[in-house]
Design a protein around this nucleic acid. Structure first.
Length: 282
DNA sequence: TACTACGAGATATCCTCAGT
DNA sequence: ACTGAGGATATCTCGTAGTA
């Protein structure tokens, strides 16, 4: 994965997504899909660009324009528009935010077929924003999962498998994208499982990364959240959630190993803390 | 045949002006 | 103040038509 400097964008952990990125993006780029409700043209332009990146993965600005245009002069002017939306613009000495400034899009490598040109793709925050705001069809969502499999390996990397095992429960990722179920104490007594404790530890684990986090760590944080959230019983089904969940992990040992590393970390975190208070007793 | 000049495709910056 | 639209310009690559 490219470094922060190479990515040309800075983003923080999930809390930063909830408290900063999501509100900022909604203010500047829209709270709802332009397809559902007509808003400013700017929102539509940005959302169309995000859709292109969601469906196609890494592209140069020229490549983005080429996805829906064939005439060279049209491509040329469209390409400039996309660039402007990506990097923002200067007017009267003031910089207005582009998609890179907010952190929804990052640079990922260069296209060197011709003169070296930046390749752009969605960041994890950008993926979440798309899930939250842009109404991607199931088909497009599948394409996004395929194109971003290496960015979010534990979820998008096994999307088909997840679909086959848990079906529409993959939509829980949209719950995260909408900023819910991250620090809710309400989940503490839903089941006997320590969901609340795991979610709390998840926030603790990455608490120093509010300002900045590297992509692999954020992908882990999102994925830990996702698999922990899957343990929360859904209202509509009566099926035994934890049984299904166990099956999901048992059929994918790499996934299981990865997830339980997190569980073990959480256990030792809490064990140590309780040890401290016990020590005060004797 | 080897070489070069040129056009087209691509990428990148900066600037102006109009509309709301 | 912000956005849309687009002009001007520079640079780089590559294929090829035309030339030495």
């Amino acid at each position: 994965m490219p470094s922060v400097k190479e990515q040309g964008a800075v983003y923080g952990n999930l809390l930063a997504y909830k408290q900063y990125t999501r509100p900022s993006a909604q203010r500047v780029f829209g709270q709802y899909s332009f397809r559902n409700k007509k808003g400013p043209k700017h929102h539509e332009n940005v959302q169309r660009l995000l859709e292109i990146l969601a469906i196609n993965g890494k592209l140069t600005t020229w490549g983005m324009a080429k996805t829906h245009l064939s005439d060279t002069s049209n491509i040329r002017s469209q390409e400039k528009d996309y660039r402007r939306l990506l990097i923002g613009r200067m007017a009267r000495g003031k910089h207005t935010m582009g998609l890179l400034d907010i952190g929804l899009v990052v640079k990922d490598g260069k296209n060197i077929q011709k003169a070296p040109a930046d390749l752009y793709r969605l960041s994890l925050h950008g993926i979440l924003y798309c899930l939250d705001v842009i109404n991607l069809s199931e088909k497009d969502l599948e394409k996004m999962a395929e194109k971003y499999a290496d960015v979010l390996p534990q979820i998008f990397g096994r999307w088909k498998y997840l679909k086959s095992m848990i079906g529409s429960d993959t939509d829980r990722l949209k719950t995260l994208a909408s900023g819910m179920f991250m620090d809710n104490i309400q989940i503490s007594n839903i089941t006997a499982l320590p969901i609340y404790e795991l979610m709390t530890y998840l926030n603790v684990k990455y608490q120093n990364n509010f300002e900045q986090i590297n992509e692999e760590d954020l992908a882990d944080q999102i994925s830990y959240w996702f698999y922990t959230n899957l343990l929360i019983p859904s209202k509509r089904s009566n099926t035994n959630e934890s049984k299904q969940w166990k099956k999901l992990l048992d059929n994918d040992l790499a996934l299981k190993k990865w997830y339980y590393k997190f569980v073990d970390e959480a256990i030792s975190f809490y064990t140590n803390r309780f040890k401290q208070i016990k020590n005060l007793k004797s």
